[in-house]
């Protein structure tokens, strides 16, 4: 059984909503990332989404764009990201790690090599924002050879027909992008999210996570009421920006926010 599957089964048993923090690997410096991952688990993270920096993050708002830029000042590469996950796995062999990013670094490495190296580092899944299933068959097949899950996005604009198609190729969990826009942008319409959630659940038994637009304990709680997992990104990454000159302060600042959100989710 994959780590993701095992995690969601145990969460379901415990009646607990999954909290999935997003941070960009190597932001603001490489040495921050692995300790931060461990700290986030202690603060209540169930799955970690680790961003692979890219020079042209088209789906991201200014906060995560800047995180990529900071990480790229040190040339944080896919190889570096694998090394971080490997180090994380020396201590934590349970918390699933999802790599999130754009296709080109993977394309240049080669799908087969990516899948092999990701699996041997202890990565569990890959989410490539700019790879829809129509273009993704080859990539998905390579991931499958190593039991890595391809995570696909569903958006407010996704038709029911496409929801069915996406659900048929996805594994691990489904990621619902709750707003039309880039990361860290607009405000959330919880009612609309609930409607879409129902449509998605008609097509899949997979757990459904919701991301984009979750800013604090209150919005996490209202989304947690309808979703299996809540993804939080920009509010956390803002802390890396605020403390970029004092990297030791990044993890405590991020974990303080996570703890609060954890508390709100546990009160459901």
């Amino acid at each position: 059984m994959s780590r993701l599957e095992a995690k969601f089964i145990s969460l379901r048993k415990a009646g607990r909503k999954a909290l999935i923090p997003y941070v960009t690997a190597g932001d603001p410096i490489a040495s921050v990332t692995v300790p931060l991952m461990h700290d986030m688990v202690k603060a209540g993270a169930d799955v970690i989404e680790l961003g692979v920096p890219f020079s042209d993050p088209m789906a991201d708002g200014p906060v995560i764009q800047k995180a990529s830029e900071r990480a790229l000042v040190h040339n944080t590469s896919l190889h570096d990201v694998f090394a971080m996950v490997k180090e994380f796995r020396e201590v934590d062999n349970e918390t699933p790690v999802v790599l999130m990013g754009y296709l080109n670094p993977i394309e240049v490495m080669g799908y087969a090599k990516f899948a092999e190296l990701a699996a041997s580092a202890g990565v569990d899944a890959a989410l490539t924002v700019d790879l829809p299933p129509e273009e993704g068959a080859e990539f998905v097949a390579e991931l499958a050879k190593y039991q890595l899950d391809p995570i696909f996005l569903i958006a407010p604009t996704t038709t029911e027909e496409r929801i069915a198609k996406l659900c048929s190729v996805a594994s691990g969990f489904i990621y619902y992008v709750s707003v039309k826009g880039v990361t860290g942008a607009a405000t959330l319409d919880t009612g609309a999210v609930a409607d879409k959630m129902a449509a998605i659940r008609r097509h899949t038994e997979l757990p459904v996570g919701v991301g984009f637009g979750i800013k604090d304990a209150a919005s996490a709680k209202s989304i947690g009421a309808v979703a299996d997992a809540v993804v939080v990104g920009s509010v956390l990454v803002k802390q890396a920006d605020a403390h970029q000159d004092n990297p030791d302060a990044v993890s405590p600042a991020i974990c303080a926010i996570l703890s609060e959100i954890r508390g709100a989710l546990d009160s459901l």
Binding site: M58, A59, L103, V129, D130, L131, P132, E134, E135, F152, L153, I154, A155, P156, T157, T158, T159, R162, L166, V177, K180, G181
Partner: peptide
């Protein structure tokens, strides 16, 4: 599907797919 041999295609985020 918009392919010129191995090139072209549609590598975009899901939100833009319907548009």
């Amino acid at each position: 599907r918009g392919h010129f041999g191995p090139y072209g295609g549609r590598f975009i985020s899901e939100t833009l797919m319907a548009a």
